[in-house]
Design a protein around this nucleic acid. Structure first.
Lengths: 203, 203
DNA sequence: GTGTTTCTGTACCGACCGGTACAGTAAATA
DNA sequence: TATTTACTGTACCGGTCGGTACAGAAACAC
């Protein structure tokens, strides 16, 4: 067993972040240990003093994202808002993570199939919690009469697609903020893009 | 220069398809030449007689998908329908490709960053044609008064996210057909999920 | 049958893969 | 100052990477 110094944890966290960026650029399999060493400005010995193995690095990256996502799910559940309010809040929570940790999210969405064994099943469980949260909110909204009677699973997949896709173009300091996009997406998803509704409302 | 027999092309096409499935399971970098040989039941010599190189295989897979996507874009443009009609039609065209070639699409969406040089710029140009087609239809719809005045770029990103994401769960012979999903998605995107509109319409 | 072309398996290449061993250094503790 | 503890660079491991050379098999032409 190896002992750990005072700032071992912070050093490791920095390595995880830097490596996430490297993976996001070259892919998990496409980025070698040598490149990670260069990105972190560390020798192999020093690197392995912190990471254990390449797969542990991948686990650290995915865990970091999923911890935040599930914390967001909890905050939304505790908010006690209406289904539509919770849907928009969940979108804002999720997109703020995407905007804050775009590289980590990139790695998560692209490389989670590289996880093996217990790590893989663990990840799938946690992802299921997030996706079910979306679907449950939609079910609540339909039951409460807030939302039309649509297939909740298919609608959830549409919602998830809209928001997941943002990891490709939503960047911190970019054209839109996470909050703006969340509001816009909630508007499209709930109210649609048709002009007809407003015509009718004016009648 | 190598000469080619009568069924060289068909053999190559079969190898491209089989390799797409292999890449979709293990990733481009994660799948070695040896695994491709096994998947295709061919020795290295035979395989290289058809593929040239590993990257050419990737190019063949992405080209196959993009050819179909751009053909769909052309058919939609030639249809002469309204913006809303064209939007739904483009969704159906795209999702039918996703359902028919899920492995190819998987490889395209995950591994296109591995393309280099002219291949990369070519791909980005063709993808831009597709994404612009979506945005242009939205602009047309807004101008014609069919759609509300929203940010066309952001709305296009929402639409693309919804449809792109389908490569993860839309399978041939699965729970939903490509046409069903396209109709459902168009309904959500254009009309939204709110119950309010129908309440107002009934008044 | 003979010669040519198309195809395929085997052996092999240098480079790089993820990972380990370990000596050495720097800093804290005594 | 002596000793321990935390950290880091170098050398190296067996294995696999993508790719090539080439001899021989199979299919074809005549």
């Amino acid at each position: 067993m190896t002992t750990r110094g005072a700032n071992w944890e912070t050093r490791r966290a920095a390595i995880v972040d830097t490596s996430a960026t490297a993976f996001a650029q070259g892919g998990y399999h496409g980025t070698g240990i040598a490149e990670l060493c260069e990105a972190n400005d560390l020798g192999k010995g020093a690197l392995y003093h912190y990471i254990g193995s390449k797969e542990e690095l991948l686990v650290a990256i995915t865990d970091l994202v999923m911890d935040e996502v599930l914390a967001g799910v909890d905050r939304v559940a505790a908010s006690g808002g209406s289904a539509v309010e919770r849907l928009q809040m969940l979108g804002a929570e999720y997109l703020s993570i995407v905007a804050r940790l775009p590289d980590h999210v990139w790695v998560l969405l692209h490389e989670f199939p590289a996880l093996t064994g217990a790590r893989a099943t663990d990840f799938h469980k946690r992802r299921h919690v997030f996706e079910s949260a979306v679907e449950d909110i939609l079910r609540d909204g339909i039951k409460a009469g807030e939302l039309r009677k649509t297939d909740p699973r298919l609608a959830a997949l549409a919602w998830l697609g809209m928001h997941n896709h943002a990891y490709l173009w939503l960047k911190p300091g970019g054209r839109w903020s996470a909050k703006d996009v969340a509001a816009h997406f909630a508007d499209i998803f709930v109210n649609g893009t048709s002009a007809a509704r407003f015509v009718q409302a004016q009648q």
